[in-house]
Simulated scan of single mutants.
Amino acid sequence: MKMKPSMMNNLLGLLRIRVKRGVNLAVRDLNSSDPYVIVKMGKQKLKTRVIYNDVNPEWNEDLTLSVTDPNLTVLLTVYDHDTFTKDDKMGDAEFAIKPYVDALKMQLAGLPCGTIVTTVQPSQDNCLAEASRVIWSDGKLVQDLVLRLRHVECGEVEAQLQWIDLPGSKGI
């Protein structure tokens, strides 16, 4: 990804979103679906590969977004790939990265591996299906998310956040 100089000035770092898997996704074809995920933040938009004939797909795919504003939310949308017609929407989920970015600002070096730094509770303002912990693990912060999809009859997506510091970025 080529970055404009103005973007580098405001760049805090990179957010790696590992889209792990879908659980009990909606059926949109004959008796299954061909799901893929689109992740959007601001003007950035990234996509996973399509997993065919599976309502419990395992993507385990890393999508990396550049972060210039920690107040932005990430919109994750699941679609069913169709060959001859428009792809069907299979729900979406939105989540804030601010709790994660706030945890990054703490000086955490030296914490024991597995330390829970903060916990984000499910609420009307997020799509969390369960409490999401930000954990210090192997010298970095990770946040596991289980997101309940909205605007659909069923389905969850599991994801994990990780931060990548960039040389030359202004950092957190």
Results as ranks from 00 to 15, higher is better:
123 S>E: 07
119 T>W: 05
147 L>T: 02
164 I>P: 06
131 A>H: 13
67 V>A: 00
73 T>L: 12
73 T>H: 14
103 A>Y: 05
172 I>F: 14
50 V>N: 00
64 T>H: 02
75 L>E: 08
46 L>Y: 02
113 C>T: 13
53 N>S: 13
59 W>Q: 02
64 T>A: 05
28 R>P: 03
81 H>L: 09
114 G>N: 04
162 Q>R: 14
9 N>A: 14
14 L>C: 15
101 V>T: 01
113 C>F: 14
104 L>P: 01
100 Y>C: 01
39 V>L: 05
88 D>W: 09
78 V>C: 11
42 G>D: 04
172 I>T: 13
32 S>W: 05
149 L>F: 08
117 V>Q: 03
139 G>A: 10
61 E>S: 11
162 Q>Y: 12
110 G>W: 04
66 S>V: 09
48 T>L: 03
142 V>A: 06
101 V>L: 02
8 M>H: 07
155 G>V: 03
113 C>G: 14
157 V>C: 07
54 D>Y: 09
108 L>T: 04
133 R>N: 15
44 Q>W: 04
137 S>L: 15
72 L>T: 06
6 S>V: 08
152 V>F: 07
20 K>P: 06
136 W>C: 02
38 I>R: 08
24 N>F: 12
39 V>F: 00
146 V>A: 13
135 I>Q: 07
133 R>Y: 11
36 Y>L: 04
131 A>R: 12
121 Q>N: 11
81 H>C: 10
159 A>G: 08
167 P>C: 15
19 V>C: 05
113 C>Y: 15
93 A>E: 01
21 R>A: 10
54 D>Q: 13
107 Q>M: 14
52 Y>H: 15
172 I>S: 11
46 L>E: 03
164 I>C: 10
163 W>E: 01
3 M>D: 05
136 W>L: 01
132 S>I: 03
10 N>T: 12
64 T>R: 02
88 D>M: 07
85 T>K: 07
168 G>H: 08
24 N>T: 08
156 E>G: 04
68 T>R: 00
110 G>D: 06
86 K>C: 09
120 V>I: 10
80 D>T: 03
164 I>A: 10
168 G>L: 06
130 E>D: 13
17 I>A: 03
81 H>E: 10
